[in-house]
């Protein structure tokens, strides 16, 4: 409750939250705003914004750009959140095991993490999506698989910090079982920074998905911002609106998530929030 109230008083965090809510609302009401599928050709090709009832214009095949942007919000948010959660699941498990048990387990897991970190995430993502057929599920799993290393490192650092705190040792001396110590004592005390980084991972996941779609590696059945930019890219000099509006959508969404994440970080970090109050 305290945290929620502190967040409501956080200026840039609130801006982020409001922008994010707008994107979410657009994503939810997209089918009501645009009952016709975004793939449907509803106007003449190259309709400029504002003409023929297409207020963001039409694309090279006469599809409604506004409908594409609205439906793209659903895809971006879904993929962003789902793959960030996938990354968190992998990262927290790897980091927790590594940090709690230490020793050889830690050594092996951390070398593996480094292996993932040394391969450029985007190249690996392209490779994985190209190998498996691009679909919603494979894209989510791929983005999750390339985004977990920072979360694993963070979780490990938090676990190392808390592992030898006296309250953890006290729990150990009280005979509590390992899983209870990890889930009941260490994780709750480590969760704030993990949540913050996960929220920021949503933003990078959205960017990754856009980039994949731009390269033509998105789910072919889903209208996505990256795909729209990719399709409009060749005609940007005479039809700017085809790539600029989806681009702005990406910008606003990623910015909103970053502002939200930073606000969350300030509020959950007791030292900063105390300074503010």
């Amino acid at each position: 409750m305290e945290t929620v109230r502190a967040f409501l008083r956080h200026p840039s965090g609130m801006i982020g939250l409001v922008l994010l809510l707008i994107v979410v609302v657009v994503a939810i009401i997209a089918p009501i705003m645009f009952p016709v599928s975004p793939w449907e050709m509803v106007g003449a090709p190259f309709t400029p914004p504002g003409e023929d009832g297409l207020w963001l214009g039409g694309d090279t095949l006469g599809r409604d750009v506004a409908a594409g942007v609205a439906y793209g919000a659903r895809v971006s948010l879904l993929i962003g959140i789902a793959s960030a959660l996938a990354a968190m699941a992998i990262g927290v498990v790897v980091g927790a095991i590594s940090g709690y048990f230490g020793g050889k387990v830690d050594l092996v897991l951390m070398r593996m993490t480094e292996l993932f970190q040394t391969i450029p995430a985007f190249v690996l993502a392209i490779l994985l999506v190209a190998t498996f057929n691009p679909s919603l599920l494979t894209i989510i799993l791929t983005i999750g698989a390339v985004s977990w290393p920072p979360l694993a490192r963070l979780t490990r650092a938090e676990f190392l910090r808390l592992r030898h705190r006296e309250f953890v040792e006290a729990a150990q001396c009280q005979g509590e079982r390992t899983w209870r110590i990890v889930l009941g004592h260490i994780l709750p005390n480590a969760i704030s920074p993990i949540l913050v980084v996960t929220s920021l991972t949503v933003a990078t996941a959205i960017l990754l998905e856009s980039a994949l779609s731009f390269m033509g590696l998105g789910d072919p059945n889903l209208m996505s911002w990256g795909f729209m930019i990719g399709a409009g890219r060749t005609v940007i000099r005479n039809a700017w609106w085809m790539s600029v509006f989806p681009g702005l959508a990406i910008l606003v969404t990623v910015l909103a998530i970053n502002l939200f994440g930073e606000g969350l970080s300030d509020v959950l970090n007791p030292r900063v929030s105390r300074r503010r109050s």
Partner: peptide
């Protein structure tokens, strides 16, 4: 059983 030195660090907040 053990009682630690720092009463602030030895209880889970």
């Amino acid at each position: 059983q053990i009682v630690f030195q720092d009463p602030f660090a030895s209880l889970d907040p």
